[in-house]
């Protein structure tokens, strides 16, 4: 009963709840190949009709931003309030534009 050296690779699972919505990350699983990954994703993450479509992608294929860079990456947007419609005060007669 030794530890198997080669685990099945890890996959990330994305599920579309219903037509018209985007796919959303919902978890991960181990599977030997793409077909098995899709099948297991269905069994594990859509047992209660949570999905109408499933994507799987090998976890080692995902490129992510470094959490250490979080402030540097995202804080510069903090002072750009003029990118939001609420920044502009208009007369009430035309405020619904």
């Amino acid at each position: 009963m030794s530890v198997v050296k080669s685990e099945w690779p890890l996959w990330e699972v994305f599920v579309r709840n219903k037509a018209g919505l985007d796919h959303k990350h919902c978890g991960s699983l181990h599977a030997a190949d793409p077909r098995m990954a899709i099948q297991l994703a269905r069994d594990v993450y859509t047992r209660r009709q949570e999905g109408t479509s499933v994507w799987v992608v090998r976890s080692d294929q995902i490129v992510a931003s470094d959490p250490g860079d979080k402030d540097m990456y995202f804080d510069p947007m903090e002072d750009k309030v003029y990118r939001h419609p609420t920044f502009y005060a208009l007369p009430s007669e035309v405020d619904h534009m």
């Binding site: 890890l10 990330e12 990350h25 978890g27 991960s28 976890s59 080692d60 995902i62 490129v63 992510a64 470094d66 959490p67 250490g68």
Partner: peptide, 10 residues
């Protein structure tokens, strides 16, 4: 993200 494969952590 449920993964330890992107091993870029500190």
């Amino acid at each position: 993200m449920y993964t330890q494969a992107m091993d870029l952590g500190p």
